[in-house]
């Protein structure tokens, strides 16, 4: 057992001396400047000219470390991306930590470093937060909630009601990387250089297309349930459908290989650094070339078009036959049959 100071104790969450040392040693050095300075109970933020865009999400991924990142990167990118795909420019984040008694301090430091590096990369500030500690066994190491505030980007007018037949469906990069990275860490398929999580921000992808924002009708980040869940959600409740071409759906080698091995449909697998954008066909090629100039958009592809087959997502397969892309049932389970 390493020495006591190397592990989180219940006292770290009880507001006493140990809480203060945790904040002063680990939180202030990383996030201390700006609204967090002086540790007020709430952050006082500047005013915003446009509408406020607000989002929150909780992160309970297990294992909390995986190839390509950890729960800290996820907690920043997930909420920042939700704001950007809703047409907002993320500015401020809150971080709520729930730690299990005995959680190694070195692991917390690694995760806090990841939160800071991701926040800096997305040019957002961590402005407020909280830490609670629960008894050993009552949580799986670490859970994080993050909430974020952004300013509405005035050029964007996003709504399902604007969708029309012939609109292009663009995905910003390889699908399913994150979900497959988690599965390969969890299923003990003991994989080396298998799939790497795509956890990243879509900030530059959104800000780089503001000049044709008026022709952009809808944006979404395909997290849980992957591309299949997002597209079914988009066409539900409308008189429109979506038609995809399997040859135009980008899949990275590692994720594709593991999906074949475990018998999983990659369209149902979560991405954490991708976005799906639906726009008027006339600006599709322009957006594609802009995105391809960014590392996080190098595999961008027009994977299909909106059509009039109401509320169905159809995939044209390599045989020339088509199939329905349905909502995933839930748990991704490795299959033998």
């Amino acid at each position: 057992m390493n020495s006591l100071s190397d592990r989180i104790q219940l006292a770290h969450g009880r507001g006493g001396r140990l809480s203060l040392s945790l904040i002063n040693d680990e939180i202030v050095p990383r996030f201390g400047k700006g609204p967090l300075d002086g540790l007020p109970d709430a952050a006082t933020l500047g005013s915003i000219s446009g509408d406020i865009v607000f989002s929150t999400d909780s992160y309970v991924v297990s294992p909390y470390k995986f190839s390509g990142g950890n729960i800290g990167n996820l907690a920043v990118h997930g909420t920042v991306n939700d704001i950007f795909v809703s047409g907002g420019s993320a500015k401020w984040l809150s971080i709520g930590l729930i730690l299990e008694e005995g959680f190694p301090m070195s692991e917390l430091q690694l995760i806090l470093d990841s939160i800071k590096s991701s926040a800096d990369e997305c040019e957002v500030k961590i402005v407020t937060g909280d830490t609670k500690v629960v008894n050993k066994g009552q949580c799986d190491g670490i859970y994080i909630n993050s909430a974020g505030i952004g300013e509405k980007i005035k050029e964007f007018n996003l709504s399902k009601s604007r969708l029309a037949e012939g609109d292009a469906i663009i995905v910003s990069g390889n699908v399913g990387d994150h979900g497959m990275a988690i599965l390969s860490a969890r299923e003990g398929v003991n994989m080396e250089n298998g799939p790497v999580s795509d956890t990243a921000s879509v900030r530059s992808l959104v800000l780089s297309i503001c000049q044709c924002a008026s022709k952009v009708k809808f944006m979404r980040d395909p997290t849980r349930g992957g591309v299949a869940a997002v597209l079914n959600e988009i066409v539900s409740g409308t008189k429109l459908g979506a038609a995809l071409d399997s040859r135009k759906i980008p899949v990275s080698n590692g994720a594709g290989a593991l999906a074949e091995i475990l018998g999983i449909d990659i369209l149902n697998v979560a991405c954490e650094g991708r976005m799906i954008l639906i726009c008027d066909r006339c600006v599709a090629d322009n957006i594609l070339s802009v995105w391809k100039s960014f590392p996080e958009g190098v595999n961008a592809s027009i994977m299909g078009y909106i059509n009039n087959e109401a509320q169905r997502v159809i995939l044209k397969t390599v045989t020339g036959g088509s199939r329905l892309v349905d909502l995933p049932a839930g748990e991704l389970l490795p299959r033998i049959c």
Partner: peptide
């Protein structure tokens, strides 16, 4: 057969029937 939409490619007089081949 279902995942690659093969049934719809086949003419009327060729029917694919699924048998008891799934252990579950």
């Amino acid at each position: 057969i279902s995942r690659y939409g093969i049934r719809e490619l086949l003419p009327q007089n060729i029917n694919l029937i699924s048998g008891p081949g799934c252990p579950v």
